[in-house]
Write a protein that binds this DNA or RNA. Structure first.
Lengths: 135, 135
DNA sequence: TCTTGAGCCTGTAGTTGCTACAGACCTTAT
DNA sequence: ATAAGGTCTGTAGCAACTACAGGCTCAAGA
């Protein structure tokens, strides 16, 4: 099969560590463009898509939601993005991450202090059950 | 409508703060039992279901997954639960919570240190974009 | 040449934990 | 008589994927 300077989906997946099906999903939701097709209908990606997909995957690792990633990409797609804009979006995401951390920390404190009150023995009375049953 | 010592779904929702539809959902997935019905087909809950639903809601607030709640309930439903069993399940959940916290903290550190490197000005160069674009 | 196996295509279903309808019934009050 | 509100059922939608099933196509080996 002749591929003038393009790669197939599995190669894109391998080069980025992305799941094969996820690539198709990102295409469906518009994070990746509809790629050109070869004569037999196979997707043929230009090599710079490796970079774009890696951008998406890195953003995902940092917990950005799809909608946030979409909006970051729409900035860079114009080529006229500014650090100020990117910072603003990132700051909002960071606020969200911090909220999640403190929610989880509150849960962590409740669980660990309650666990510390448990006898851990083969008895029906249990501090955790008391907390869950409290009205 | 005659309800011998039972309450309707909306009342159960009001008394627990639970969403109306969520009650039906918990019934469908087996956390709440199929309640008896009045002549017209309305659900009529015995009053102790308030307690059970509150147990579920408290567990959800503490981040327990449905499957974990199901397993806690199946312990208490026998009436022969032990503190040791409940502790073991709770400890597993706590481990999970702590994993999530440290994942989020890693993200938080990356985001905040990268943000600190940003100029925040109206220029295209941006530390965040560099991180997202790195290969 | 035939066949086998791998790779690609599409569409769709499943995941978790809900939430929100649509359309039909029933009850209560005016 | 009718209007407003409650209840019922089933189903669709959310995020963010992941994993099939069923059908082509392609390259390599016997």
């Amino acid at each position: 099969m002749e591929l003038k300077s393009g790669i197939l989906r599995a190669q894109l997946a391998r080069q980025t560590g992305c799941n094969l099906e996820t690539i198709r999903y990102y295409e469906k939701v518009g994070l990746l463009p509809d790629p050109p097709r070869s004569a037999n209908g196979y997707r043929v990606y230009p090599p710079d898509l490796v970079q774009r997909l890696q951008f998406i995957l890195h953003a995902r690792e940092l917990g950005f939601a799809m909608e946030e990633i979409r909006s970051l990409l729409s900035l860079t797609d114009t080529g006229a993005q500014t650090c100020a804009e990117v910072m603003a979006k990132t700051q909002l995401h960071l606020d969200d991450v911090r909220r999640k951390i403190s929610d989880l920390q509150r849960i962590e404190r409740t669980l660990s202090t309650t666990l510390a009150e448990c006898s851990g023995e083969n008895v029906p009375e249990c501090a955790i059950l008391s907390v869950l049953n409290c009205s």
